[in-house]
Amino acid sequence: MIDTEQFLSFLSEQGFSLATGVPCSYFKDTFVSLEKSKEINYIPATREDEAVGIICGYFLGGKNGFLILQNSGLATIGDALTSLAQLYKIPLLMFVSYRGLEPDADFPEHLVMGDVTEDVLEAYQIPYWILCEENWKNTMEQALKVMKDSSLPVCVLVKMGVLSQ
């Protein structure tokens, strides 16, 4: 597992000062660290598309934030991505839990979205990376470079055990 305090410090150093989204248990430890963080403010959202709106508004005011959501939320944010973030070219970093893989065999509610998660991201034309404990900084630097160069949303998929025990 990645040290979540180090992970958030890295994001803070990269200029992120706000987080919002809808929790997933895959991010449980990340949320504990977020609550402690003095550099990154967290606002709970009621829906994932609302969280996209908050981060886009925050960006229009000149600051950067990131999103945390479960992959179920990828189904909710379609219009927020296509007719806001992508249409206005707003850079958006999304951490999306990759539910519905082997560890979720007993959670049928995640299985269909687990099967189509990468297809959905490809259909939305959103570049994505799968975060691993090894070389996580490299992965993040690549994702952030693409986000900044394109001024568009990017997605970092997070499997079980990577950002929470």
């Binding site: 403010n41 969280a51 709106g53 908050i54 508004g57 229009l60 007719s83 806001l84």
Partner: peptide
Amino acid sequence: QVYLRGSMGLPVSIGLGLAISQ
């Protein structure tokens, strides 16, 4: 100003993010 073309349902959340930012 921020004129929304799409993203129906999101002006309040965009306004909230902007207000926190500024």
